[in-house]
Amino acid sequence: MTGRWLNIALAVYVGLIFTFVFAPIIFSLIFSFNSQRFPTIPLGEFSTEWYVKIFNDPDVWTAVRNSLIVSSSTAVLATVLGFCTAYTDFRYNFRFKGPYLALILLPPTIPLIIMALAMLAWLSRIGMSGQLWSIILAHSVMTAPFAMAIIRLRLHQMDPDLEAAAWNLGGNEWQAMRHVIVPFCAPAIVSALCLTAAVSFDEFAVAWFVSGLNKTVPIVILEIVQGNIDPTVNAIGTFVFLTSMSLVILAQLLFISRQIKSHS
């Protein structure tokens, strides 16, 4: 009776939710090609003015370079740390394992602003703040749990006899690691690299606090937003969005979709 109408109503509702979620992303994309300084409806003319503007801005280029350095270094560090923890959790049982895991998994639950303040105070204290690598240090702590989770999920799928089989065939523990565990985890490792890079690439609060004069892309955005309305933000935002999305889609293609399939 009302089943059909209920389905239609629900479909419309879900559509509205998705509209709300994606409206800012899509509008940002549209505005980035819009000639108006203060975009509204009706839209102005198509224009690549804002792209040209950021393309010719040396500050933006520096920020892009900084962001690439920060996110790639963060990705490598966080993935190494995440891998070590995931493997330890997979292989060993020991006292204080709970606190050990909490140590790595806790940071994402702490609000960014608090993390930013704590990092700034501490890194200044030990003379490590105001550098590009200050951001890398902070981001590695914040993103390692994501890498750990992805790699742990992969190890969970591994036949626990596989490592022992390598020993049984004459490989020592290091060889088993090199020839069995790492190859088995390879897709998860690449996926973890992509995701941690994507998270680091977008992070602005902690980066802004600890970076000193070294600006990354999100910091540039933050500074533009703090000033006047400037549509170059949309152009930069589109660039950031495309970068992050390629990383996420790469991670998805490599690992996550397979994960979902094998679990359902």
Partner: peptide, 16 residues
């Protein structure tokens, strides 16, 4: 997807 897009840019977009 939104978790991997800049929250700042989205906020700015809402502002507009």
């Amino acid at each position: 997807i939104p978790f991997f897009t800049s929250y700042l840019v989205r906020t700015f977009s809402w502002y507009v």
